[in-house]
Structure formats: structure tokens, C-alpha cells
Amino acid sequence: MAKPLLCGRMEIGRIYNIKPTVVSNTWIHRGVLSYEDAAIVSGKPVWPGGFVESLALPPGSRGRQLDEVALAALEAEQGARVRPRKKGELPALVGAQEYAELFGVTQIAVGQAAKTGSGLVAEPDYALSGSKVWLLDTVLDHAPATMETSRKKLWVLRDKVAEALQEGRYDGPGSFFSQRGNKAKPPTP
């Protein structure tokens, strides 16, 4: 499968020349964007690039104007070859939480391994809104090296987690959207 264009809040802000907070505070609140249209990776929404592109209003109208130059630059940076319109068209994606679950380690261990370049963690396919994201195929292709490099053989691929991710039925850590900030706090009575 060709590598898809993906967008988090920061990428949407970039290609529409708006602040990422407008994406989360205004677009989602007004129904322009929905978490239903996003894949949830490590608790964060990731929207298909073609879907995000389709949100643009016609040139010359007021409102959501797509910056074609910024879109092309993002597509080049990601090495994306397709612009899927639906989350069901996306390949299985892995963030740090899912990576940790795949190998039975902590998310902290994944983060440290990614920083040190120890060979335990594959090079990420994306940096979306400040988070590393991998295609599941990248992680699985790198799995033999991960397990070989692991001291005391602590990193062991969990086939059941890989199958669940591949089949779109994964419901472990990172699989649901987690509210942050004031919206995460329970209402005051």
C-alpha cells in the first residue's frame, strides 16, 4: 500500500494557516471535524489527508481556505503518495502506547529507545502534531531487530496485539481518544 497523507491538529493548522487550537477548540466544537472521522493513535486523533483536504471551502469564499503549497510541502515531508478520505482506508497505525503493548514494555521504554537510536524501535514513519507514529508494517518488519537488540530479551512481539491492530479490533492502551486539559476535568457540581 502506498504511504498515506495523515494530519493531526498541527498539520491541519499548517495547511489551513490557522492555530492548532482553532482546530481543537472551534472546528471540532462546530462539527467541521469529528473524532469519528479520525483514527485514534495513542489517544490522539489522526485524520486522513484527503478528508482534511475536502474540508476546504471554494477559493474566494470566506472561511476554510486550503494552502496548496503547504499541503504539497507536508505531503513531500511525509513521503505520502495517496490522500485517503476515510479512516477505513488507512493502514494500521502505531503510536508509543500501541508500540509498548506490541512488545510488552512501558511507553517510557519506547520513548527512551526512540530517543537513543538503540535499534530497539524502528524509525517513525510520521511526526504528527509532535508525536511519533509508525505504520504497523514498519514495526513488524523491524520486530526481529527489536527482539535481537533487546537486553535480557524483554522486548517480545505479542502476536495477538499485532493481529488486533491489523484487523482494526485493537482496544488496548491508546485506542480511545483521551480528553486533555479543562475538558478532561469532571464538571464541578
Rank of each mutant, 00 (worst) to 15 (best):
S61H: 08
A70E: 14
G50E: 10
G31F: 09
P20D: 10
D37Q: 09
V52T: 08
P59D: 08
R14Q: 15
A70K: 11
G49L: 04
R30P: 00
I18N: 10
R64M: 15
V52W: 05
K44N: 14
L33P: 05
G60E: 02
E68Y: 02
A56E: 12
I18M: 11
N25S: 12
G31T: 08
L66K: 07
S61D: 07
V69F: 04
P48Q: 08
V41C: 14
N17A: 15
G50S: 11
G43R: 03
L71F: 08
S42Y: 07
N17M: 12
V32G: 01
G49R: 00
G63C: 06
A56M: 12
E53N: 07
R62C: 07
Y16H: 09
V23W: 04
T26G: 00
S54C: 14
R64A: 13
A70G: 01
V69E: 13
V32P: 01
R62Q: 14
K19Y: 06
W27Y: 12
R64I: 12
F51I: 06
A38W: 01
G50Y: 09
I18F: 04
D67W: 03
V41T: 14
G60I: 07
L55M: 09
L71E: 04
S34C: 05
P59N: 04
D67E: 03
P48W: 07
N17S: 15
R14F: 13
S54Y: 13
A38N: 03
A56V: 12
Y16D: 06
G63V: 02
L57H: 13
W27S: 01
Y35E: 00
E53V: 14
V69A: 13
L55I: 03
V32M: 00
K44I: 10
I15K: 01
V32L: 06
V41M: 15
S34P: 00
G60L: 04
A38Q: 04
W47G: 05
L57K: 14
L57I: 02
G43W: 04
G60T: 03
H29R: 15
W47K: 05
D67R: 08
R64G: 07
E36I: 02
L66M: 08
L55K: 12
W27E: 02
R14L: 15
R64S: 05
H29T: 12
L33T: 03
V22Q: 13
L55Y: 05
A56Y: 11
G50P: 11
I18W: 05
L55F: 02
K44G: 06
S24N: 13
R30I: 00
H29W: 00
Y35L: 06
V69N: 06
V41E: 14
I40S: 00
V23K: 02
P45Y: 09
A56K: 14
P20C: 11
S34M: 02
K19W: 02
N25W: 00
G31M: 09
L71R: 10
L33N: 03
A39I: 12
S54K: 13
A38E: 02
L57T: 12
I18G: 01
T21S: 15
K19L: 10
N17I: 11
W27F: 06
P45K: 09
Q65K: 09
